[in-house]
Design a protein around this nucleic acid. Structure first.
Lengths: 189, 189
DNA sequence: ACAGCCATGTAACTTGTTACATGATTTT
DNA sequence: AAAATCATGTAACAAGTTACATGGCTGT
C-alpha cells in the first residue's frame, strides 16, 4: 500500500498531476525508489475509483496535465493510516525466512553454504549502505538518511539472524551426532 | 515468490496434491503461515502453466486427489533459487519506512507521536514473540524457532530505527530553533 | 530535423489472496 | 443424520509493475 498512500499523502499537500507526483514521490524517498510513470497513473485511477481523490476537470481548462485533488474520504483514510501503527502481522511472509525454513527441511540443500552465501551478500549490502551514508549531508538528505538507517538496521538484523540460524543448525547436527542423554524420542515424519 | 517456491520445494521432495501441500507448507513455517487452500490450487496451476510441475493423471487412477510432480525445469529453478542470495534490492518498498518518510515531509503530521505509537506496538510484538519463544521446544520446534528469531531480530531493528528517526528529527528541530552558526543557506522547496 | 524532456494513458501481466461452489469420506 | 475433515477447483479482486502508444513543447 506504499505507492497508494504515498500518492495520497502528496495529494494531501496540494493538488497535482501524474508526472509531478512521480518526481515528488521519488524525491521523498531519498531518490532511491524509482517508480514507473505508468504505475502512477494506474494508482491514481484506483484512488479515484475508491473515491479518495477526484479530478479537477473544468476549472483548470488545460487539456494536458489533469490535476487531482484529495477528497475528504481520502484525507480520512490517510489520517487513519498515519494514526495506526504498521503491524508486522504477516509473520513469515518474507522470502529469505521461508527460503531458509525450506532449505532446513529439504535435506538435500546445503544450508550452511546457503547461509554463508546470504551472509556475504548481506555484508556487502551493509557496506554499500554505510558508504552511501558517509557521503550524505545530514542537513540536506534527511529523507535519504532515514531510509539508509532503515536499510542498515534491517540488514544488521538479517546478519544476526543468519548467524543464529547457523548456530541452531550446528547444535542440531551435534545433537544428532551425539547419543541421546535421556528419554528423547524421535517422532518426526 | 514465497508460496510459489514453497510449493515447488515441497514437490521436490515427493509428488503431492493440493490439500496435502497446504498442510505441509503450514507445518514447515512452524504453523504460523496459514495459507488459503484456494491459493494452493491457483499457485499449482501457475507452476504447471510455467512448466515447473506436471500432473500425474493416468497412472494414479483416482479421480480425486490429483498429484503433481516437479519437472526438471522446476528442479533447476528451485536450485537457482536456493543458490542465489535474496537481494534486498527493493530499498524502501516497505510500508513503515515510506510512512515515516512521508510523515516527516508532510508537516501537519505529528511525527514524534507516530514514532511513539509505532514503538509501543513494536515492543508489544517483541514481547509476544519472546513469550512464544520461551514456550517452544528447542528440539521439536526448530522451524518455529528459526521463524521467531527472524521476527525478533527484525522487530528489534525496527525499534532501533524508530529511535534513530526520533533522534534525527529532534536534532533537526533543535537546529532549526537555534540560530545558524556559519554560512548555512536554506535552499529547500 | 531531431533529441530529449514533459505529459498522459492503456493493456497486459505477476503474485498474493479470498469467497464461493461442490462433493467424498470419516467420525460422532 | 449431522458435523467435521479431506479434497478440488473457479471467479474475482488487490497491488505492483512493465511495455507500449501517443503527443506537445523546447533547445540545438
Amino acid at each position: 500500500m506504499s505507492v497508494r498512500y504515498g500518492l495520497l499523502a502528496l495529494l494531501d499537500e496540494a493538488p497535482s498531476h501524474g508526472y509531478n507526483l512521480k518526481t515528488a514521490f521519488e524525491r521523498r524517498t531519498g531518490g532511491s525508489w524509482a517508480i514507473n510513470i505508468g504505475q502512477v497513473y494506474t494508482t491514481i485511477q484506483r484512488l479515484e475509483r475508491d473515491g479518495l481523490v477526484e479530478s479537477l476537470g473544468s476549472s483548470a481548462g488545460d487539456d494536458e496535465r489533469r490535476e487531482y485533488r484529495i477528497t475528504p474520504a481520502g484525507r480520512a483514510q490517510l489520517a487513519t493510516w498515519f494514526e495506526n501503527p504498521v503491524v508486522a502481522e504477516a509473520p513469515a511472509r518474507d522470502e529469505l525466512t521461508i527460503k531458509v525454513l525450506l532449505a532446513v527441511a529439504a535435506g538435500d540443500v546445503d544450508v550452511t553454504a546457503l547461509l554463508q552465501r546470504q551472509r556475504r551478500a548481506s555484508i556487502e549490502q551493509l557496506q554499500a549502505y554505510t558508504r552511501r551514508k558517509a557521503k550524505a549531508d545530514p542537513k540536506r538528505d534527511v529523507a535519504f538518511l532515514i531510509l539508509l538507517d532503515a536499510l542498515i538496521f534491517r540488514t544488521e538484523a538479517e546478519i544476526r539472524w543468519l548467524d543464529a540460524c547457523d548456530a541452531r543448525i550446528r547444535s542440531l547436527a551435534s545433537a544428532a551426532a551425539a547419543p541421546p542423554t535421556a528419554g528423547s524420542k524421535e517422532t518426526d515424519g
